[in-house]
Computed example of a mutant assay.
Amino acid sequence: MSSTRSARSRRAWRALWWFPVPALALYLFFFAYPSVQAVQYALTDWDGYSAEYRSVGLDNFSEIATADDVFANAVGNNLKLTVTVVLAQTALALLLALYLVRTTKGSTLLRALFFLPTVLSSVSVAFVWRFVYDPDGGLFNSALRAVGLDSLQSVYLGDPDNAVFWLALTQVWFHAGQMMVVYIAGLQAIPAELYEAAHLDGAGRWARFRHITWPLVAPATGIVLAYTTIQSFKAFDLVLGLGGNPPGPALDILSTRVYTTFSNNEFGYAAAQSLVFMVMIALLTWVQRRALRRAA
């Protein structure tokens, strides 16, 4: 009897090994293999159509690093966008979570309202905000004219120096509610006894936040920072919706730059750009995690 059970158990364990196979196959086919191909194409001058192409070694990466001013402009725009969005969105999401962490009817309604933009498509958000930013009949300039503040009117997305910051405002409005939910989950996991003990010891609000809330909400902050950084680098459809295809130099970021290069039939060069793009995201995420550990 025991030998029969043992045989069944062994067969069951052998069967369990087959469960990851479909997921592993999809991963290898749709991610690992294309990644290896991207490295291969990055070392060539392939145009995406020709059957033949030649190897150029590291020339594509050399050009990106030393001679491609358009790519350098996209990197600068993306860094401005990322820093602005990460700081503003993280602070706003945490602030909203601190005020709405208690579950009441009012807080539940406000959570839903703040989370609502997240369920909208990027294209619809972009077109709504194009109306808001319209310098002639847009919401912002119309409101400023209505209250007599005509001197504060702007061309918004048409301003080459500040267009990327108006893009950042749209991005923060779009996803702050989503990050708020992450923070609320992190705050609700903190034991209430810690706050009660700190209150009895005479700790004020700032002291409780600094020594209890901030360290214990660090895992949620890590998720928010990583996700927000990736969002900022992948704001492709939002940029195209706001700035057109292709966007102007003031709104061109790395994802749109790589897309435009592919569209120009420079597949080898675009593959090299995409690899640089990937390395930048990984590096920034790693730096964030290191900084977060030290701050906590």
Rank of each mutant, 00 (worst) to 15 (best):
Q231R: 03
S50N: 08
T221Q: 13
V132T: 06
L216V: 06
L144I: 00
A168S: 05
L275P: 10
G248W: 04
E52N: 10
A38W: 00
G158R: 09
I212A: 13
R5V: 11
M280D: 01
D68S: 01
L240K: 12
V56K: 08
A25Y: 14
L58Y: 01
P160E: 04
T170V: 15
V36R: 04
P34H: 02
G222M: 04
A72D: 01
Q89P: 06
A272Q: 11
L92I: 10
L94G: 02
F114S: 07
K234S: 13
Y33L: 13
V21Y: 05
N245S: 15
V172M: 07
N265R: 06
S3Q: 06
A203Y: 15
G222C: 12
S274W: 08
T260V: 05
A91S: 15
A163E: 10
F115T: 02
F165W: 07
G57P: 03
V56E: 09
A97G: 06
D136N: 03
S124A: 13
G137V: 02
A226H: 04
D161P: 05
P22E: 05
R210K: 11
L24V: 05
P160M: 04
N78M: 06
R5S: 12
I223N: 03
F30T: 11
A168R: 04
T82Y: 06
A203P: 15
L16M: 12
A226L: 15
V123Y: 08
V85C: 13
Y49E: 09
A250F: 03
E63V: 08
V287D: 02
E266V: 05
Y27K: 02
Y183A: 01
